[in-house]
């Protein structure tokens, strides 16, 4: 430090440990500030103003939120978001775990199947959403067509035209897209469980269900906690799929908070109000993160001892 002071700030910056550290951190810091902190801050600020597109707003306190609290469409979108997140996450978890367990067995062409499982995740969301758009088409839907051929229904199903049909249809599309992430992550988790534990349990007299319940599942919980936290966060903030499939319709039945926020802010021009909806998501996301923070803490059996 003494030398640095003698040499002036430029020398300090390029030659001392802390100065170099600062320089090396700069790109990352600039990136984070420009693309994460600034937009987030701006969004929060906008939520407390009455900004419209083309007109700078003034600070209006909580007026946006008061207004939203009486807005039935907003509350409908909150309900939709929760419903969508809950059902889709439960399905993704159950089906993903099931797939992971199957893929963990010694199947022929195991690697081929593992690769195929990843496909829905690799395809860009907009593309898969477009495919689902056709699958759910009110006239040309392949599902309706097959069911009609089998004589199970008389008229095509109006997948995206009826509120509940639409809700379940978008959930189906989201589950299809989300399963690979869950399945592959859980598969990775399953592979960290030593085979000998299952063998020991089998010798101890455990049936395959007991082995799953008492060995596999408890050992998998730390990974399940991580994977499901991410899955819930992705689902809660989902936008693309809904926007391509239904744009929030019919009659706002599939509007999630993210799509409603965009709807109000950009096409609707009410930047302040849209921002307020987006900000309203923050408490829920924080809750999910806190939940995962406590869920992810090392369990007692994972602590202590090296090797």
């Amino acid at each position: 430090m003494a030398r640095a002071r003698r040499g002036g700030p430029l020398v300090w910056l390029t030659e001392s440990r802390n100065g170099l550290g600062l320089i090396f951190m700069l790109p990352a810091a600039v990136f984070l500030i420009c693309f994460l902190t600034y937009p987030l801050g701006l969004g929060v600020w906008l939520a407390f103003t009455d900004t419209k597109i083309g007109r700078a707003g003034i600070f209006i306190g909580l007026e946006n939120f008061t207004w939203l609290s009486e807005d039935r469409v907003f509350w409908l979108s909150v309900f939709n978001t929760f419903f969508y997140t809950l059902i889709a996450s439960v399905l993704k978890f159950a089906l993903g775990l099931w797939l992971a367990l199957i893929l963990n067995e010694n199947l022929p062409f195991k690697n081929f199947f593992r690769a195929v499982i990843l496909l829905p995740w690799v395809v860009p969301t907009v593309l898969s959403a477009l495919a689902f758009w056709w699958i759910f088409d009110s006239q040309f839907s392949i599902i309706s067509w097959v069911l009609m051929k089998w004589g199970m229904i008389d008229a095509p199903i109006n997948f995206l035209g009826e509120p509940w049909n639409a809700r379940f249809s978008v959930i189906a599309a989201n589950v299809w897209r989300g399963i690979p992430f869950v399945a592959i992550s859980l598969l990775a988790g399953l592979q960290t469980i030593p085979q000998s534990l299952n063998e020991a349990a089998a010798l101890d007299g455990a049936t395959s269900w007991q082995r799953f319940r008492r060995i596999t599942l408890p050992l998998l919980t730390p990974i399940i906690a991580v994977v499901m936290t991410f899955s819930v966060l992705f689902t809660f903030t989902d936008f693309q799929l809904i926007y391509v499939l239904t744009r929030g319709g019919p009659v706002n039945a599939t509007h999630l908070m993210a799509t409603l926020s965009f709807q109000r802010a950009i096409p609707g021009g009410q930047l302040g109000e849209g921002a307020a909806i987006a900000v309203a998501m923050i408490p829920f996301l924080l809750a999910a993160i806190l939940f995962s923070f406590f869920g992810l803490q090392r369990r007692r059996w994972q602590q202590g001892g090296g090797d």
Binding site: E199, D204, P218, W301
Partner: peptide, 13 residues
């Protein structure tokens, strides 16, 4: 039959 494994195979949880 009871077996003692080389890596002990104790249930960590």
């Amino acid at each position: 039959i009871a077996m003692v494994f080389q890596n002990y195979a104790l249930y960590p949880h």
